[in-house]
Amino acid sequence: MKKTVRRVLFYVMVLVVLVYLADRKFHFISKGEEVAQAETRSSGGSLPVTATIIKPEPLDDKLIITGALIANEAVEIASEVSGVVQKIYFKEGSRVKKGDLLLTLNTEDQEAQLEKLKFSKKLRETSEYRQRQLLEKEAISQEEYDVALTELNTASADIKVLEAQIAKSKIRAPFNGTIGLRYISDGAFINSSSRIASLININPIKVEFSIPGKYGTVINDGDPIFFTTDASEKTYQGTVYAVEPQIDQATRTMRIRATSDNSKGELFPGLFTRVEVVLNHKDNALMVPSIAVVNDLAGHKVFLERGGKVVEQPVTIGIRTANSIEIIEGIKEGDTVITSGLLQIRPNSVVEITDFN
């Protein structure tokens, strides 16, 4: 008897719980229907959405990579010969022109030797002249004359060697540029390994960057580039002048160099750059806001508005930009693409466009 009562009470309690849950669900559904009805009444029986009308616009297919600025010309000034610095003619940070005298070494010993060789040469010239006169009279043999001529030519060669050494003691600027910091002083003894100063030409300045090897046939000499630096948000323009004719085996990239005007001196070697290279230009690309493109298992799709109703349209996408996506197939000029309420709308839903993007 007691077991039967307990069983009855258990079933009664279960029934009460089920009735309570059904009542809550009913009120929840009723409330949702009331909200939906209110929204429907406020929108005249349709879901308010925003949209954009498709029209062709220009589009650049850009490749964005990092690079670095390098000097147009750069060299460490050095001496080919050893010696004592006699005088320094340049100032640190100053501009020099090609051929300007930068410094000289003491050449007193070489100049004395040169003077001695010149006197010796005059003696050899006199001897050669006399031997030639005697040879014409057949008073000496050809061999004796050849010895005199060889001595004269040797003296001339020795003079040229010494003059070349003296010329190397005068160090001149190999190109137009700016002198860097100086590391020597007057009276210092220097040789070929001594650090003197650097000479740098930064106008124009060069931009060096690497691109994936698959784009090697797309970029050519004369193509424009655009770049910014870490030091400024200003955009500069350059022109490609050289493409490495091989792909780096380690990185699978090709190195490219471009030049850019730097007459204002705003750019310096060593700065990192963010380079934009235009791979392809389209005059009539069909672009839609990125938010309008929906991903699904079959690919991509957009929702079009036609006659106040929603039409689901599969599309093929192309180039992506910061805020837009190119549509290659699936839509045409003049189509109205819905850009909001994408989670609520379904095919054949009734919508009302409240604003155009």
Results as ranks from 00 to 15, higher is better:
135 L>N: 06
220 N>F: 13
225 I>W: 05
190 I>H: 00
160 K>A: 11
138 E>D: 15
194 S>T: 10
198 S>W: 07
195 R>N: 11
158 D>Q: 12
194 S>A: 06
209 F>L: 05
192 S>H: 07
182 R>T: 10
140 I>A: 10
194 S>P: 03
133 Q>E: 15
159 I>K: 09
149 L>P: 02
210 S>V: 06
222 G>T: 05
222 G>D: 07
199 L>Q: 02
166 I>C: 04
207 V>Q: 02
212 P>W: 01
166 I>M: 03
153 N>V: 12
126 T>P: 11
190 I>Y: 00
181 L>M: 13
190 I>E: 02
216 G>M: 10
145 Y>S: 09
150 T>S: 14
129 Y>K: 15
176 N>T: 09
169 S>Y: 00
176 N>S: 13
145 Y>T: 01
123 L>A: 15
147 V>H: 10
141 S>N: 09
173 A>D: 04
131 Q>F: 13
202 I>L: 07
189 F>T: 06
155 A>S: 15
130 R>D: 15
218 V>H: 07
187 G>Q: 04
151 E>I: 01
126 T>I: 13
156 S>Q: 09
205 I>E: 00
164 A>C: 04
140 I>H: 10
160 K>L: 08
162 L>I: 08
167 A>F: 03
166 I>E: 07
186 D>P: 14
203 N>A: 05
219 I>S: 11
175 F>S: 07
127 S>K: 15
224 P>I: 09
205 I>L: 01
124 R>N: 14
128 E>K: 15
146 D>T: 11
205 I>H: 00
151 E>S: 11
172 R>V: 08
152 L>Q: 14
128 E>C: 14
207 V>N: 04
164 A>I: 08
187 G>I: 07
185 S>P: 01
123 L>I: 15
210 S>T: 08
177 G>W: 03
134 L>R: 05
204 P>V: 01
137 K>H: 11
177 G>L: 00
223 D>A: 11
188 A>Y: 01
203 N>V: 05
187 G>T: 06
225 I>K: 08
187 G>W: 04
156 S>V: 07
165 Q>H: 05
177 G>P: 00
148 A>V: 01
155 A>D: 10
143 E>C: 05
126 T>G: 15
126 T>E: 12
189 F>W: 07
133 Q>I: 04
196 I>R: 00
137 K>Q: 15
176 N>D: 14
144 E>S: 13
178 T>F: 02
206 K>A: 03
161 V>H: 07
147 V>M: 09
164 A>R: 11
162 L>W: 02
158 D>L: 13
174 P>R: 04
156 S>F: 08
157 A>V: 12
204 P>R: 00
192 S>V: 03
189 F>R: 06
201 N>S: 13
210 S>D: 12
147 V>T: 08
126 T>Y: 13
216 G>N: 10
193 S>R: 09
182 R>L: 14
203 N>K: 02
207 V>E: 03
160 K>H: 08
165 Q>T: 08
132 R>Y: 12
150 T>R: 14
175 F>G: 09
154 T>C: 06
183 Y>I: 04
174 P>L: 00
175 F>T: 05
204 P>D: 04
150 T>K: 15
145 Y>H: 10
167 A>M: 06
124 R>H: 14
148 A>W: 01
168 K>F: 08
191 N>Q: 03
186 D>T: 05
128 E>L: 15
225 I>G: 04
124 R>C: 13
134 L>P: 01
206 K>N: 07
218 V>R: 10
